[in-house]
């Protein structure tokens, strides 16, 4: 028996229709998002959900995990995203890009809402309390990871999303298609995001 539902997935993916997202997420109260999920759960489920889920689930988790640093939270986000997708009429050919963008947005929203909650505490590091790999520990400390994720959530939404998708292994063409931008501008957008995050790291390093 599992009496718990996984926590933390309150932020929803309903807002994730990529073109509708840009600023709207910030204006929406979490309560409203949740209602939207509930409402969406009543419609019919699209026929290709099974197939798309099996094809893309792992990648969607991967995108959310990059933002959140926690596999468990990333899986919660992926559930929200596929739930929305299942009720959507996103064309099959755009499903992959739509899912990745939705995962990034939902995960970024989650960090933001956590930050709001944690803001009165000094440690905003709470934004990332999950498991991270050992691979890069030598280079980047746990605290730095948390800080960079908080900074990521503060970036303009498009920059943050492009950055996360690129670092999740999408090609420039895929990022461009998912975010409806020109392939030429993907590099510029990703570069700006990386520069901003580097600046954030340096700011903390010098103030320590």
């Amino acid at each position: 028996m599992d009496p718990m539902r996984p926590a933390g997935a309150a932020a929803s993916a309903v807002l994730a229709a990529p073109d509708a997202v840009a600023g709207a997420a910030d204006l929406r109260a979490e309560g409203e998002e949740r209602v939207a999920v509930t409402g969406a759960a009543r419609g019919p489920v699209r026929g290709d959900l099974d197939e798309v889920f099996r094809r893309d689930y792992q990648r969607v988790v991967g995108v959310a995990a990059r933002v959140l640093g926690s596999r468990d939270q990333a899986e919660d986000v992926a559930q929200e995203v596929f739930l929305s997708f299942g009720r959507s009429s996103v064309p099959a050919g755009e499903a992959g890009g739509w899912l990745m963008v939705a995962a990034a947005h939902t995960a970024l929203n989650l960090i933001r809402s956590k930050r709001r909650r944690a803001s009165r505490e000094e440690s905003v590091a709470a934004a990332s309390d999950g498991v991270v790999s050992d691979v890069a520990d030598a280079v980047v400390t746990r605290e730095e990871r948390s800080r960079i994720r908080v900074a990521l959530a503060r970036l303009p939404r498009r920059q943050a999303t492009a950055l996360v998708l690129r670092h999740s292994g999408l090609s420039y063409a895929e990022v461009a298609a998912a975010l409806d931008m020109s392939p030429g501008s993907v590099g510029t957008t990703v570069r700006r995001a990386e520069a901003a995050l580097r600046k954030e790291m340096n700011r903390h390093a010098s103030s320590d």
């Binding site: 596999r71 992926a78 890069a136 980047v140 990871r145 994720r149 996360v164 995001a193």
Partner: peptide, 20 residues
């Protein structure tokens, strides 16, 4: 730097069937 900071244990043990 950013890649390292965002790195996860990607690909490891995602249980797609359970998630479904």
């Amino acid at each position: 730097l950013v890649d390292a900071a965002l790195a996860t244990e990607e690909g490891a043990d995602v249980d797609v069937a359970a998630a479904w």
